[in-house]
Nucleic acid binder design. Structure first.
Lengths: 336, 336
DNA sequence: CTGTTAGCGCGTTCAA
DNA sequence: TTGAACGCGCTAACAG
């Protein structure tokens, strides 16, 4: 059992040097003699010396890590995490990921954990059930900049990166109109998600632009559960005038809605077209996938948000006054 | 700008106490007077004091965190991560997740990062392209126990948790046989993944048990790319005797194979049945999903692996000799 | 019940 | 070119 964890002190002792010399030699400090440097590095390698990042972080009061808070590592946020990782790793930072499972209590808790871990900054997409962002306020006191992305709270003075959907939604409606659809419904997400409004705005503007009739009963709200979608579909189809195309809040909702038609109303309505947002990688394998979707570029959002974060961190390091950054990227209509 | 991060020292100064008293009071140490405890905790709250976990970890030489290494946070490993998180959080540990993207170099690097961060233990599923586990050896020197799960290296003396597939694979073949299939093919995963052998073993035993003919050309190997699957399908269908059912390595492969039939050979072979392993949540939405799949219980594997890890950690804490644990769980055939 | 002291491993002055 | 001394924030051993 060689459970001897090597330290700089140990190397210094063996080489009869001071630990500061060793510390410098390990980092190729120019003021250290070549011979010394070489023998230090040689011994370090033999002992399998690996610097204690905990000690470094602690003494420098800088953990070289950023926290990522997302509701779930589903395929959508998974792509965002890639963007975050790519940017963080390029800056020699490590990444702490936490899932909130869309619960406010968990969000509060993981945020606290991250503060205690003294992450240098945080990239966050808020939970669906978060009524406010008070729990993020302490981060300011702890000098931990926060960048919100994708699901951005509607509050001033914060850093944010998100993807506007209104224009693409207009295009989505126009696309459906060009296919001859005149009765287009929208099943939107829960009111607690601000991004829902973009969809609604684009929907109405799209109808107007294409001179299509507006039926209030064509707009439904669903939580993101399967049952919720079924209920919305029920409500949609209970009116005299039925939709011939449906815009759903996301891919999962489209899947549930299509499943509903097949199982609950087999045969009828099989000609209803679906379009949606932020495609799952497996959606294209459906026999009859949605006709189109609006790409929200999660990878780019994650990457941009992290870039904003590093700009804030660098500003903080120089004690500069950093005004909050608010980036908006354009979504894009993709026809399968 | 109130960028004053409160410390125990600061609280002690304000209250004219020593920092050890404050430290104890904050942790409800019984030897501290009620009055003192209360006033310390009151002030701590007012100052928004949050203990510096970095300092605690450093001084205790225990980071209260475990590392998780997986190839990718795809839906499969995502479920495993839930199991890991549930167990870790229950033990007041935090979780560091790293993706290797199935590349050996990245695996080596994230492992090193975790060691430097002094995680207390690691739960890992090895990369497809990892030729050996030499890079894990240093963990022993650093007293960091490692538990491999799901993709387990074929080496003695390690902790492991995996899911045996041979018996379920026999059942899978029997199920297909019961449906009248006599020509059953298997598209297996790459040789670098040991779990592939379980499938192969079960396949042959299943054929034997059901007295089905063995055709060597019915067994193909594919890397896990779409192109690889297409090639395997090409090869399978190029023989005189065609399969009527195909067992694929996983869901993605089934999707690709089915897609191949629809796109490359439309109309023909539309009666080929598929069965697979470890279902994606969205697979059930297909018009004609695989008939059945073998559940590998990733959540349970992750949870069990983490439990093993904590047993090792507790043993280590008591300086006990901990023999490695090797758990095997049974997979289960699920018919849609 | 409370205070004093030492030390965790490292980087960083300042001094030689 | 090297070394000595200090401090990061906290816990713990030992005193009182």
């Amino acid at each position: 059992m060689q459970n001897k964890i090597p330290t700089i002190q140990e190397i210094a002792r063996l080489l009869k040097l001071s630990k500061s010399t060793v510390s410098r030699a390990l980092r190729n400090h120019p003021a250290i003699g070549l011979r010394t440097t070489q023998q230090v590095q040689k011994l370090a390698k033999e002992l399998n010396y690996e610097p204690n990042q905990l000690a470094i972080s602690f003494s420098k009061r800088k953990s070289m890590s950023i926290g990522v808070i997302v509701s779930s590592l589903d395929p959508y946020f998974h792509r965002a995490v890639f963007g975050i990782e790519d940017c963080a790793y390029a800056n020699n930072y490590s990444v702490l990921i936490s899932q909130t499972r869309d619960e406010y209590d968990i969000e509060v808790k993981v945020l606290e954990t991250m503060r205690k871990q003294r992450v240098d900054g945080i990239v966050a997409s808020i939970s669906r059930n978060a009524p406010d962002i008070r729990h993020f306020e302490k981060c300011r006191q702890y000098n931990i900049p926060v960048v919100f992305f994708d699901r951005v709270p509607d509050v001033a003075g914060i850093n944010s990166v998100w993807c506007r959907l209104d224009i693409s939604t207009i295009e989505l409606v126009s696309y459906l109109a060009s296919k001859g659809h005149e009765h287009i419904a929208l099943i939107n997400g829960p009111v607690s998600l601000p991004i829902r409004n973009e969809r609604l705005k684009g929907y109405y503007e799209g109808l107007e632009k294409n001179k299509l009739p507006v039926y209030e009963h064509f707009v439904k709200t669903a939580d993101l559960s399967t049952v919720g979608t079924y209920e919305a579909m029920d409500a949609l189809l209970s009116h005299r005038i039925k939709p011939t195309a449906i815009i759903t809040f996301n891919d999962y909702m489209s899947l549930d809605a299509m499943h509903y038609l097949r199982k609950v109303k087999p045969g009828r309505y099989s000609d209803i077209d679906f379009v949606t947002y932020s495609s799952l990688p497996t959606t294209r394998y459906l026999d009859r996938p949605p006709l189109a979707y609006v790409d929200q570029f999660p990878y780019e959002q994650g990457k941009l948000a992290t870039e904003v974060l590093f700009r804030q961190l660098n500003g903080l390091a120089k004690a500069e006054i950093m005004p909050p950054e608010n980036l908006v990227i354009e979504s894009r209509l993709v026809v399968y």
